[in-house]
Design a protein around this nucleic acid. Structure first.
Length: 153
DNA sequence: GCCAACGTTGGC
DNA sequence: GCCAACGTTGGC
């Protein structure tokens, strides 16, 4: 099992929004960056995912979700009406993908970006290193465990 | 709202 | 294939 982190702007889709989805499950669509896409494709069913709130007052990891369906073509990329439409994408020859994420639990306290930056043990976490703008990125086991322990689930 | 750090696009 | 121009992300 692998660990990941996905980002979402809470103004457009928050952890609560995921909880409120049917079966607390949502198709994670709209990724239009190749590296982030490759990370989506590397996800397996059962992988655990930190849910991170970005571009907001207090950027933080706020919860945990699970990959419940492995990657499949992003339907929003084939929809000309959709802002994520890509004419070079098709069902037959897909360029962009989604996974399904299911809510698992909220952290009892959010793990803020500013706190993460203060932790020696997390000094090389992908979230604050090169390529940190990716909307989906891998998290090392040790970093995952450190954060989960500190969140006192 | 600013801007640094990227990623993408397209002319050549 | 280079690189300038442009767009996006996301912290501050």
């Amino acid at each position: 099992m692998k660990y990941w982190l996905v980002k979402s702007e809470p103004d457009s889709f928050s952890l609560q929004d995921l909880i409120d989805c049917p079966n607390s499950t949502e198709m994670w669509d709209g990724v239009r960056n190749y590296q982030a896409r490759n990370n989506l494709k590397a996800m397996s069913e059962g992988d655990q995912v930190f849910f991170y709130h970005s571009s907001c007052k207090i950027p933080a990891i706020v919860g945990i979700a699970e990959v419940t369906k492995e990657h499949y073509p992003d339907p929003t990329a084939s929809n000309p009406e959709h802002s994520g439409f890509d004419p070079k994408h098709s069902e037959e020859n897909p360029r962009w993908f989604v996974v399904d994420l299911t809510f698992k639990q909220a952290l009892s306290r959010p793990i803020t970006l500013s706190w993460i930056k203060q932790q020696e043990a997390l000094s090389d976490i992908s979230l604050i290193s090169k390529g940190s703008r990716l909307s989906a990125m891998p998290i090392e086991d040790a970093h995952w465990c450190y954060i989960v322990n500190c969140a006192k689930l």
